[in-house]
């Protein structure tokens, strides 16, 4: 039948077209598929660009700074007077402030964080753990500016009733508050390390008649030591980079002292002071900002790499 044959003929044409169309579609699809990895790589490279951006901006301006102030004077100078008639740029007072505040913070955070981790991992029931851990997460989620407010308006006046010579801005109070801020971090990282110690080791020690404390002290902590130390190092790194608490509560006196009741400026607080003061671009003060930031960056980078190395290298595999 003519009608029928016409139909088949049409159909054949249609199918040929369809195959052609399909091929085109497929090759378009393939082109699209092939372009995706390249596109995603571009997106992924933003994180590399960020690193390059940080390092290059810091490096360029730091080099400019060291053309004006000798590098030896910067790292050995104990006097920092950027605004005086005869400016002096020694970074040691800032390093002193940073190290002191971090040590105070760790004196609070390391023992309390570790004990919290021990309690949660070795003693607490599932129910207690489920209530305490979210609360610690809340503690970790409080913005640092709130801690700064707390240190300045509550902890300092409170400490003053015990230490009358305490100044209104001092390094002790922000140090302690920073310690409180770091507790959850150390507790959670150390707890992770301790929980990953296999139960068979605990049971072995318990079977020999050890008390729970002895099991914790002689078996669990030695086995989890790399993770615990790594958590301490990360805690120090966090304390070194912390800005708002020390800026608010420790003031801007560039003291080179061991007296923790006095105001001491940290590297981070110096950066805030200089950028807040609208230092004219091109002045030595402006460049000093980058030199201090570079020092801070290297400090924390070193700590973070160290923490990773420790937890990887000394990890005992079971």
């Amino acid at each position: 039948m003519p009608v029928n044959s016409d139909l088949t003929k049409n159909k054949a044409v249609n199918i040929r077209d369809l195959i052609q169309q399909n091929k085109e579609k497929k090759s378009n699809r393939e082109k699209f598929e092939k372009s995706i990895p390249a596109l995603l790589f571009l997106i992924a490279s933003v994180s590399i660009l960020t690193t390059i951006g940080i390092v290059s901006t810091l490096l360029m301006e730091t080099v400019e700074f060291f053309k004006r102030v000798p590098i030896v004077d910067f790292f050995t100078g104990t006097v920092l007077k950027p605004l005086s008639q005869t400016p002096s740029f020694g970074v040691l007072p800032l390093i002193m402030g940073t190290v002191t505040s971090s040590l105070i913070a760790m004196a609070v955070a390391a023992p309390i964080g570790l004990m919290t981790a021990i309690y949660l991992s070795e003693y607490a029931s599932e129910k207690v753990r489920k209530t305490v851990k979210p609360l610690l997460e809340v503690l970790a989620g409080v913005p640092t500016i709130v801690y700064g407010f707390f240190a300045f308006t509550f902890v300092t006046p409170l400490l003053k009733t015990f230490i009358p010579t305490l100044e209104a801005t001092n390094i002790l109070s922000p140090g302690i508050v920073m310690g409180v801020m770091i507790i959850p971090m150390i507790a959670s990282l150390s707890e992770d390390a301790m929980s990953s110690v296999p139960n068979s080791m605990r049971e072995g020690a318990l079977g020999l008649g050890a008390t729970k404390l002895e099991v914790t002290g002689r078996v669990v902590i030695p086995a989890a030591l790399s993770g615990i130390i790594a958590s301490f190092v990360l805690g120090i790194s966090r304390a070194i980079g912390e800005t708002m608490i020390v800026t608010i509560a420790s003031g801007s006196t560039k003291n080179f002292t061991f007296d923790i009741t006095q105001s001491m400026q940290t590297m981070t607080a110096y950066i805030v002071e200089v950028t807040g003061g609208d230092a004219p671009a091109g002045s030595t003060i402006y460049y000093s900002l980058y030199a201090v930031a570079m020092t801070l960056f290297l400090f924390t980078l070193l700590m973070n790499i160290m923490a990773r190395k420790i937890s990887r290298k000394f990890r005992e595999e079971y």
Binding site: S47, I48, T50, T51, G53, I54, T57, L58, L234, S237, I240, G241, E242, T243, T268, I271, V272, T275, L289, Y290, A293, L296, F297, T300, L301, M303, N304, I305, R308
Partner: peptide, 16 residues
């Protein structure tokens, strides 16, 4: 690189 960036203090990002 990403884990290093996560450890950079926030103030350094401010400078960037």
């Amino acid at each position: 690189n990403i884990s290093n960036l996560a450890g950079v203090p926030s103030i350094v990002y401010g400078i960037l």
